[in-house]
Amino acid sequence: MHRPEAARLSPHELYNARLGLWLFIVSEAALFSAFIAARYLNLGTQRPAELNQPLGLAITAALLLSSLTAYRAETCIAHGDRAGFLRNTLWTLLLAVVFLVGVVAEWVEAFHLFPPGTRYGTSFFSLTGLHGLHVLSGAVLLLGVYLHGRRGRYGPEDYWPVEGVVKYWHFVDVAWVFIYPTLYLVG
């Protein structure tokens, strides 16, 4: 109503959008903290020995690496390097898919080892599931900015959607940095 659609954000609006996103991220962190807290409140630091540690480490590495490529994508578009932006966004998407496939593989194993009805399985499936949904939504958003980017939508003066999605992606990554030790390492 108050501004023409698809117009470039003014510096004032850009600042507002950033602040809004950061507050959203703080709020989301509270959601994850509740599920992480429930894990410790329900079963302390107990952890089954059958966890697939190599797979857990592999998907963690993929996700951490994807933050690097996401960062590079944002930096490229900020400097007007559209080809680099597209290339790095694709790499990020690829790593996201690797992560999600890894989680599905984990789930298939875990269903037999510690199903959702067990106390560890409860936290394992809900934490990886909640986080997986966030990864999936982040991947969909990344795909969105990739497709828009291919049609020349962003430039060095106007890339807030890219910045926003990448910030969200970093957050999803940081959330995993807390979830991974909670599920795989403590105890």
Binding site: L23, V26, S27, E28, A30, L31, A34, F35, A38, N42, P115, P116, G117, T118, R119, G121, T122, F125, S126
Partner: peptide
């Protein structure tokens, strides 16, 4: 904007107990 998430989380856990057979609060499952 912060604390509402804990309401959502606690109710989602009840929902997971109901629809996914989890054992957050379901007494018979520990």
């Amino acid at each position: 904007f912060i604390f509402t998430q804990y309401l959502a989380a606690s109710l989602l856990m009840v929902l997971l107990d109901r629809v996914a057979g989890m054992s957050y609060f379901h007494f018979a499952r520990g």
